[in-house]
Design a protein around this nucleic acid. Structure first.
Length: 527
RNA sequence: GUCCCCAUCGUCUAGUCAGGUCCAGGACACCGGCCUUUCACGCCGGCAACACCGGUUCAAAUCCGGUUGGGGACGCCA
């Protein structure tokens, strides 16, 4: 069981380390022998919308630390607010985590399934005089709050019901006056605090802490309480969450104490802000902060994780690209940054649809990862656009892999295979405006030259790099134009693109028959 | 208004705890060059920051104090 070993002077709590120790009867100084229990972390999203990048990053950090320490990650859906929770968002969150490849060892648990425990805990606190019924009405409280705000004085509960007598409480209950349960913050002087793994020592004056509500008037327990009760039950050893929870942590410390439970290690990660330095949220930023958006826009899952982890953490050296194993190895809580980072997405930027660094990291993986590993991801986007052919996994597998290899260095996201790379997988593709005018319309002679060249290509028994290039250059020479005119004209007609790989490589890849057909179609673009 | 947290290039950051090796390193973005049938990749180069003031010290991005700025919390939301 838990052993309480070391008391830190001046604080009513044991430092967390103490709770992670097992007593050693033989040791003379048992506090020096720290036997760590299995680390247990949790990701507790509230199902009020899709998974957004802040949540994903929190999940990632928890997951990484669990993996690093050989511990467990618990997924717990905090659905205590029935009004705002939805089945859809539960599924959305799970889908998002699955896509990212963040797996969990236990759960998903649902907070509502444990409400009896939360109520029992609240009842126990009341019984022990550590919480009390408060009969102040919402309106009254709101009025006081407004007044305090207006008078520019402290905003917070004034303790009206804190000292109500037994008889008075019973009387009010009998009269049917609704009440909430408030936690009774101990009357102590001095400070309350904990050692944050990221921020260091965090302290707060007891006087600053208001008696907070733990159970609503309808009997439903609130987050502050549920969260602690669940963490105790789930034996959570490390709480890694955003800095927006810092004031909650102070209050929850009191709850742990009142419930007689060991305090976990806390690590508060910096928040991710938008380009105007406001906290990112689903409501004000929409799809650009949704994990799903990155899935749908051709991101490689691990590349996205790699980007996210760098938003507020660094390994201490110059490395930025990590394999899963490397990242787990390199990750640590104490190298998490203290200051908030900005998610530098560029709204309406024609070149970058999100943070340029995210795209850069994605490109890196897209261009360097093993083609065999990339192929299934390319398959997914092709399937979605009805460009997939089963032979790409059968007799044309080599062709498929080589084609990916040929075209990927120009791509940024997976969906580029279906847009810029469309002509490799389908005859139904558009000629882009720019190459049309620049490479085709500008040279009317191509209307006859390209079909002529097509005829020669059709007769070629050896449709090779050397032969296709030789005939193209001969064609240019006969017509008295620069080879580039022929080459870029062909690129345009064959791929629809202004830029691409070496043209003759393209021809071989697309194949003799299709190349001939496409070259013959040249005149139709001039009408 | 109160409390808490934070502060290095445009952005992500290294360096801060153990002051000198930092007229501050890397990445992305941007600009230029090389390569080239195009575009990209790649390679080479460039631009660009210690918020401010004071103190401690032989020496401060680094330690201390203050100022300013930014963020967060202050709910019968999570």
């Amino acid at each position: 069981m838990w052993a309480l070993i070391k008391i830190e002077a001046g604080y009513p709590f044991l430092p967390y380390h103490a709770y992670l120790c097992e007593p050693d009867k033989n040791a003379t100084q048992p506090q020096e022998r720290k036997v760590m229990h299995e680390t247990r972390l949790r990701f507790p999203p509230s199902p009020t919308g899709y998974l957004h990048i802040g949540g994903a990053r929190t999940a990632l950090y928890n997951w990484l630390y669990a993996k690093k320490t050989g511990g467990k990650l618990v997924l717990r859906i905090e659905d205590t607010d029935a009004d705002r929770s939805s089945e859809d968002s539960i599924q959305g969150i799970i889908d998002g985590l699955n896509w990212l490849g963040i797996d969990w060892d236990e759960g998903p648990y649902f907070q509502t399934e444990f409400s009896h425990e939360h109520r029992a805990a609240a009842a126990r606190l009341v019984r022990h005089g550590k919480a009390y019924h408060c009969f102040c009405s919402k309106e009254e409280l709101e009025r006081k709050r407004e007044a305090a705000l207006k008078a520019k004085t402290a905003v917070g509960y004034d303790g009206t019901c804190r000292h109500l007598g037994e008889a008075e409480i019973t009387a009010r209950h009998e009269r049917g006056i609704p009440s909430v349960i408030r936690f009774k913050v101990p009357e102590r002087h001095g400070k309350l605090g904990y050692d944050d793994e990221v921020l260091g020592r965090i302290e707060s004056d007891y006087e600053e802490i208001d008696d907070f509500v733990i159970v609503r008037s309808n009997g439903n327990p609130l987050y502050l309480l549920c969260n602690v009760v669940d963490d105790i039950r789930d034996r959570i050893t490390h709480v890694v969450r955003g800095q927006d929870h810092m004031t909650n942590t102070i209050k929850q410390l009191l709850l742990y104490e009142a419930l007689g439970a060991p305090v976990p290690v806390f690590a508060h990660m910096p928040l991710t802000l938008d380009t105007k330095k406001a906290k990112i949220s689903k409501r004000s930023h929409g799809e650009i902060v949704a994990v799903q958006f990155y899935r749908d826009n051709g991101f490689i899952p691990w590349a996205f994780n790699n980007f996210l982890v760098l938003l507020g953490w660094s390994p201490g050296d110059d490395r930025e690209i990590f394999s899963k194993e490397e990242l787990i190895e390199a990750f640590s809580l104490d190298r998490i940054n203290k200051s908030a980072s900005i998610f530098n997405y560029r709204k309406d930027d024609p070149k970058f649809f999100t943070d340029p660094k995210a795209i850069a990291i994605n490109e890196h993986y897209l261009r360097t990862m093993d083609v065999e590993a990339l192929a299934p991801m390319v398959k997914d986007v092709l399937v979605k656009e009805q460009l997939w052919d089963d032979s790409y996994e059968g007799e044309r597998k080599q062709w498929f892999l080589q084609t990916i290899e040929l075209i990927r260095s120009r791509f940024h996201v997976l969906t580029d295979f279906t847009t810029m790379g469309r002509a490799y997988f389908s005859d139904d593709f558009q000629i882009e405006e720019k190459p049309l005018t620049k490479n085709l319309l500008k040279f009317p002679e191509l209307q006859t030259l390209l079909p002529e060249l097509a005829e020669r290509y059709a007769l070629l028994s050896d449709f090779s790099l050397e032969q296709t290039e030789r005939l193209a250059r001969e064609c240019a020479e006969r017509a008295g134009v620069k080879p580039g005119v022929i080459i870029n004209g062909m690129r345009t007609v064959v791929t629809g693109q202004l830029a691409g790989p070496s043209l003759f490589e393209i021809l071989i890849t697309i194949g003799q028959q299709k190349v001939v057909e496409r070259l013959c179609r040249t005149p139709q673009f001039y009408v």
